[in-house]
């Protein structure tokens, strides 16, 4: 048992159960090694009622949304439903959020929880990886802002220290205008992704300015390879067409799906199909 508390935490103001301030939460985390509880939709699947949860829903800093010139800043405690219903949210994220599970899960599940749980099948995490978002981690000792790729390092593995909280997500505003999100599940709702795909594209005067692909549910972490997509950045449409097979072959070599209920061969094929179709459609529309 992690926790051997003598006194019972009261569910009252200033308590350690559901702190009202970030400081209080961080103080608890620093001392007790509690398990941060955001929406509970992943945590509560397990049957262990004795876990020392630290409930985060009362912390205002986790519920915020703002934007500046460079970033959308999303509080880690925003639920998928809040994201879907807020007109200011980036459309790509709204689209991904709206395909997660079903209303009751979207009402409770949070974007921060979706990342911190570090499932390679997490649909909102996929979007954050594709957009090269940053995460802000705060502890009593200070804070750091790191690329999400440095945060998600394995299945159910992040670089969060036990005393840190994921407080905010910074999604770059650039390159969000033209995207595609595809979730491949076994049915149209309540589906766990078998493959998920997000792609961003930008071109100006016939020259590719940006290309970013990410694939979920294939490996231990979400797959994003800027160096592969970089093959085509700065290229004209004709050059990109000529390079597209090389680009696709690089993706083919880069993606190694793990074994799962649905075969690795299939998931690889879907990744490549979605990548190729995405590029093709964008090159056509850029012409």
């Amino acid at each position: 048992m992690v926790n051997s508390m003598v006194q019972t935490p009261k569910g009252k103001e200033g308590d350690t159960l559901a702190p009202k301030t970030l400081e209080a939460a961080l103080a608890s985390l620093a001392q007790e090694g509690a398990i941060p509880y955001a929406g509970g939709t992943d945590l509560m699947v397990a049957e262990d009622e004795r876990r020392p949860f630290l409930f985060l829903h009362n912390i205002a800093e986790l519920q915020g949304f703002s934007e500046d010139d460079e970033y959308y800043r999303l509080g880690a405690g925003l639920t998928y439903t809040r994201i879907m219903n807020d007109k200011r949210m980036p459309a790509l994220l709204v689209e991904a959020a709206s395909q997660i599970a079903a209303p009751a899960i979207r009402n409770a599940g949070t974007i921060g929880g979706n990342i911190a749980n570090a499932s390679p099948k997490a649909d909102s995490a996929l979007v954050l990886v594709a957009t090269d978002s940053l995460v802000r981690l705060v502890s009593a000792a200070g804070e750091r802002v790191i690329p999400i790729g440095q945060f998600l390092v394995g299945r159910q593995k992040t670089t969060r220290r036990p005393d840190e909280l994921l407080v905010e997500i910074l999604m770059p505003k650039r390159w969000l205008a033209d995207y595609r999100f595809t979730k491949v599940g076994g049915r149209k709702a309540l589906a766990i992704s078998r493959v998920s795909f997000a792609g961003l594209f930008a071109a100006e005067s016939g020259v590719i300015q940006h290309l970013a692909l990410a694939f979920g549910a294939v490996e231990d972490t979400i797959v994003r390879r800027p160096q592969i997509d970089g093959l085509l950045i700065g290229k004209s449409v004709e050059e990109a067409r000529a390079l597209s097979e090389e680009w696709l072959a690089a993706w083919d070599a880069a993606i190694t799906p793990l074994r799962g209920r649905v075969s690795a061969r299939y998931r690889k094929q879907v990744c490549l199909n979605l990548a190729a179709a995405f590029l093709k459609s964008r090159l056509e529309s850029t012409d």
Partner: peptide, 16 residues
Amino acid sequence: IRNNSYSDYLIPTSVD
């Protein structure tokens, strides 16, 4: 039997 839960054995939902 590997498909022993509602997340692994899918039945149609209202939107299917």
